[in-house]
Structures are given as structure tokens and as C-alpha cells.
Design a protein around this nucleic acid. Structure first.
Ligand SMILES: [Zn+2]
Ligand SMILES: [Zn+2]
Ligand SMILES: [Zn+2]
Ligand SMILES: [Zn+2]
Lengths: 165, 165
DNA sequence: GATGTTATGTTATATTATAACAACTGTCAA
DNA sequence: TTGACAGTTGTTATAATATAACATAACATC
């Protein structure tokens, strides 16, 4: 198993790689990764825990950015359109996209113990979704696929929440 | 293909069957399907279009029920716990469950043209989710699976939204 | 009918998201 | 260099969704 959000890794690399990638993509596409947009992306990548819009807003405010809701929602809208992040509907929170080169909605593992999210792109899931849709003559535009539970790391930890009696 | 939310059918049968089923389940389980709970369930089943909490609230108000938000959210919470409805996270709306006997989260086809939802329970999807989770040592507790697009009926309709020039 | 439990009423507030319009910034060409 | 335009940001207000907290009522059981 490769490195994931759930296993220990050099996260500063995740951040710098995501930002570099975003800058390149925006340049290629002729769109502007303005300071507030880049900062929101950095904040989203601060950890693998999805972050809410108002939490982002508070962080921006601390740093002297404009801090009215439209500011952050506009940045999130831009970043979403560029495929640089995903919204997790079951959490109303946002997480950086691991692979922003090609449009996709992704599949997510959400750990309720550590609150981290790992994006997947499973061809088995895509195939199963397609199969179900086809059976009903349904044409898929997009999807929300969020698998909620407990990650490997948290399963292996001594259970801190239920100490022995 | 059997009857679905998307195809024409005797919907009054859907409603009465859902309510009968709910009454039986609640009796068996020793829980109370009180008037407001039953009415909310009926309203949710009013159509196959998922309905929002505040739309339910407005409908209850018209009928003389108490109409403060906690009233409807409590009813939704109860009905959700009893497996009688599902929340669709991508819509913030609620839809009646077709098969409330056994606990499940379901998979949903959501048509953006007619706004109807069809619940599925695809073993292929379940298997594909399990496979992805297992590959990461992830233990699934629940999931949100919403497939958004256009249903068969709407695909077959002459396109009313884009008239010929 | 006293008691404990469940359900409902009520008020207030928290959380998430958007509408509407004004002001500013960068680009490019007349 | 000015004007025109598109894109971006600032600002204010409000919409939409959801919950906290505490009081009262209804129901069950003894
Ligand atoms: Zn990382
Ligand atoms: Zn992605
Ligand atoms: Zn029906
Ligand atoms: Zn169901």
C-alpha cells in the first residue's frame, strides 16, 4: 500500500507539491491563482482533514485577508472549478485534490476517528456505478461517493476512547 | 426493469404502502409513530422528489401543526433512526426509504431534470466499496452514495429546455 | 395519583451559503 | 493614454439549513 493521508508521511511535501501543481495548471489554463485563492488552497492542504468554509474564513482573517463569507466561497468555487479541491457533502467541508489534471469527482474514505480524508479513484466503483445506472437507463453526470468509517491507523491504535474498566 | 420513481406508476400505492409498513414496524419495535412523525413521513412520500426540512416545516404549518424547526428535525431524526427515510447529503433533502426492514444507507440515482430520486441497493457497488476499503485496511461504518444525472424518462422526453432555434 | 420516561413546545442561536451591487485591477487596443 | 471590457475583490445584507437549551405536556407503570 502506498502512502495515504492515513499513514505517516512528509506532509510538507504534499503541500508544496499541491501548490506547485496548482500554479502550473493555472498558468497553463490562463487563469489566475490570486493570493487569496492560493492561500485558501494552502489552508485546505494544511492537513488531510477536510476543512469548513468558516474555519478557512477565520484563518484568513487572522492573516489580514478580507474575511467576509463571499471571499472564501469565491475562492472555493474557483478552486473547485479548476479541480484543485473537492467538497465533501457529508461533512460540508473541503479537501485538496490529489490529482487535479483530469476532471473527476473522486471517491473518499473518511475516518471518523482522526477526521482525515483519503481520495481514491477506483475503477471497480466507477464500473459498479455505471452498471447500476445503465440498468435503469440513467445517464451519470457526477456523483458523491463518501465511505465513512475508521482508517487502518486508528484501528491499530490502542483504543483511547474506551479505556479498560 | 421494474417500476421505479422515474417511471409512471400508482404513487398513491407507494404512499399507503410506506405508511402501513411504517406503522407495522413501529408497533413491532415498540416505538411511537406519533401524528407529527407520521405526517412528516407522508409528506416525504408525497412524491419521489426529495424534500427539504423547511419545505416540510411550511407544509406542517399550513396544516396547523407546530412549525418550529426542532419539530421537523426531531421527526426526521426519528424516522431516520427507524430507517424510514434517508437524507441525501448532496441535496440537503430527505426521501422515503423503499425497504425499511433492514438497516442500510442505500445508493441513490438523482435526476437533475425531474428532481426525483430512486434508491438502489447494488451488491456490485457494495462489493466495490468493500474492495477499496479493504485495500486500505479501512473499516466501513456507513456511506453516502449519490449518483447524479438524468433518468431514462427525462432522456427520452423531447428536450423542453432547449427548443430548436 | 406519584413517578420516570418520552415527546413536544418555545426561544434563541449556530452553521453553511448566496444575492446584489459597488469598487478596483489588469489587459488590450483605439 | 485613455477608454472599454473582463475579471476580481469589497461590502452589506440575507437566505437556507440545523441545533442548543430549557420548559411543558403526554404517556406508561407501579
Ligand atoms: Zn500529506
Ligand atoms: Zn480529486
Ligand atoms: Zn411512487
Ligand atoms: Zn433505504
Amino acid at each position: 500500500m502506498q502512502a495515504t493521508a492515513f499513514s505517516p508521511h512528509d506532509h510538507s511535501h504534499c503541500i508544496s507539491s499541491a501548490i506547485d501543481h496548482a500554479q502550473n495548471l493555472c498558468t497553463e489554463r490562463g487563469v489566475r491563482l490570486t493570493p487569496v485563492r492560493q492561500r485558501v488552497l494552502e489552508l485546505v492542504w494544511r492537513s488531510h482533514q477536510p476543512i469548513g468554509a468558516y474555519e478557512l474564513l477565520a484563518a484568513l482573517a487572522k492573516e489580514g485577508f478580507n474575511s467576509a463569507p463571499p471571499t472564501v466561497y469565491r475562492a472555493l468555487e474557483f478552486l473547485g472549478e479548476q479541480g484543485l479541491l473537492h467538497k465533501l457533502d457529508s461533512l460540508n467541508a473541503y479537501v485538496g485534490c490529489c490529482n487535479p489534471d483530469t476532471p473527476h469527482q473522486g471517491h473518499f474514505l473518511l475516518c471518523e476517528a482522526c477526521n482525515k480524508a483519503q481520495e481514491l479513484e477506483s475503477q471497480y466503483i466507477n464500473l459498479a456505478l455505471k452498471l447500476s445506472a445503465d440498468q435503469h437507463g440513467f445517464e451519470i453526470q457526477r456523483h458523491t461517493i463518501e465511505i465513512i468509517g475508521t482508517c487502518k491507523e486508528c484501528l491499530e491504535k490502542p483504543n483511547l476512547l474506551e479505556p479498560t474498566l
